[in-house]
């Protein structure tokens, strides 16, 4: 337990010192602010671009702001998350720093779980800051309107991010170079979405965590509908982590 915490502390410092955590934070902050801004400014920009031409554009609302936010997080940010975190284990095993640590009294499971915990910390802090900024901007730019189930919606996207981290960590333990690990993570992530889109599975699949956010905010999806996806999201993340630990234990270094 002690070595687990020690190694987690080292991981967090490394995220800071090697700019990986900083990159995730800055990207999330940027999207947190630009999403509501873009929603607000799009009609103005279109007006400028098509000067003289009358275009009918509906006045944007807070719905557009959050729609932008969840779209950006669900796509761009997840890509960044995969790119950053799919290098976590493989960079250490291929270089040889992991071998130095694992011949001390650090167990292989602790190694993996430390990586996960620190990745999750970076993600949680960055995402919370980003969501906070997004809410502030949205409240200021679109004073009217009251989003339904905003926090549940935000929580779902957070959990979606955690699952993405677990996916990246698994491929990072399986492969022995970064490019393969990143490509593998994209494939596995795509596979989970693909399976989620099979009609009979859709209602239970974790992809709803990153897809039903706007439905929750506009009120067209009841919170109860997310109960099972949240459960499967947690379950799949746990299974991915378990698989990473077990595979790493059997891996020759």
């Amino acid at each position: 337990m002690n070595s687990f915490l020690v190694f987690t502390a080292k991981e967090l410092r490394e995220q800071l010192k090697t700019f990986k955590g900083v990159v995730v934070l800055v990207v999330l902050l940027i999207f947190g602010m630009t999403s509501p801004l873009l929603a607000k400014l799009t009609p103005e920009i279109l007006k400028l671009a098509g000067a003289g031409v009358k275009i009918q554009i509906p006045t944007p609302t807070y719905i557009d702001a959050y729609a932008q936010f969840f779209k950006n997080i669900g796509q761009m940010v997840m890509i960044v998350v995969i790119l950053v975190f799919s290098g976590g284990v493989v960079s250490e095993t291929s270089k040889g720093t992991a071998q130095m640590m694992l011949t001390k009294r650090l167990s292989r499971s602790s190694f993996i779980l430390s990586k996960f915990l620190s990745d999750a910390c970076v993600w949680t802090i960055s995402y919370a800051a980003s969501a906070g900024l997004c809410i502030c901007y949205t409240v200021y730019l679109f004073p009217t309107g009251n989003p339904a189930h905003l926090f549940l919606s935000l929580f779902c996207m957070w959990l979606f991010g955690i699952m993405t981290i677990a996916v990246s960590l698994l491929t990072s333990t399986v492969f022995n170079n970064y490019a393969l690990s990143a490509v593998g993570a994209f494939c596995l992530w795509g596979l989970i979405s693909l399976i989620s889109s099979i009609p009979k599975i859709t209602d239970y699949a974790p992809s709803a965590l990153g897809g039903d956010n706007m439905g929750l905010i506009s009120g067209s999806i009841a919170p109860a509908a997310l109960r099972v996806p949240i459960l499967t999201g947690v379950l799949i993340s746990a299974l991915l982590l378990l698989a990473a630990c077990l595979l790493f234990r059997r891996r020759e270094l």
Partner: peptide, 13 residues
């Protein structure tokens, strides 16, 4: 895959 017996060992690769 276990680090238990490494408590006796100092290792330089």
């Amino acid at each position: 895959g276990s680090a238990a017996s490494n408590r006796h060992i100092g290792f330089l690769p």
